[in-house]
Amino acid sequence: MGVTILAQFPVENKTGPQIIEVLSKRICALGATPQGQFLVDCETFTSVPALGHQRTVHVLHNSEQPATVFALLETGTKTIPLVTDGLFDLLIMKMISFYQSKKHTKTESKGPRFEIGDFSVKLGTVNITSNFKGILVEVEYKPCVVPAMCWDLIMEFMQGFLGSSGPTAPPAFLQNRMQEIYSPIDTIQQYLEHFTIFRKSTGPTMVMRPQQP
């Protein structure tokens, strides 16, 4: 498990499959080999009014950690992460009378997965209840565990195949965790951050990039 950076790729009047194809071609031209598919999904539950102050639970799965279920509880003031095993899915089903599934919020990012050197690259198409929303590119540098040490290196790699749409600053979530040891829950937090942005937007998200001076 290494440091993972998640970045949104601008859609610019193209369809999802078109962008995925362009990016797949680019990464393969750099010498990457396809390594199957991946899927990250997220379902959101809200507490019933009877429980008082409303809380939200996001339940996420990542195909990289197939035996694990991630849950993020938002209390309004802070977010409590929880890493559990597969049984948590059954538990949340039992709690249906306290936590109800939010309508039309099932979000997923899936697509091809590539390996290149010590990097693994995932090109995800984000769908919210099967409506196309945008593209998320995930890059993982596996040998390194501290984001601060390898951020420049990952940024260089991402700019290598995303061009100018590659990230120029660490993701907001990671910015105050740069010196800490990276763990799979940090990837999930980044996904949730992006999913929340997608949910608030309408239609395929147009990413506005700041104009270069």
Binding site: I116, G117, D118, F119, C144, A148, M149, D152, L153, F157
Partner: peptide
């Protein structure tokens, strides 16, 4: 190992290795 760029080409990566 991961944070210092190459002294000659001042890049981080060459054939996907630092």
């Amino acid at each position: 190992l991961f944070s210092a760029p190459c002294k000659r080409c001042s890049k981080h990566l060459h054939s996907n290795l630092p």
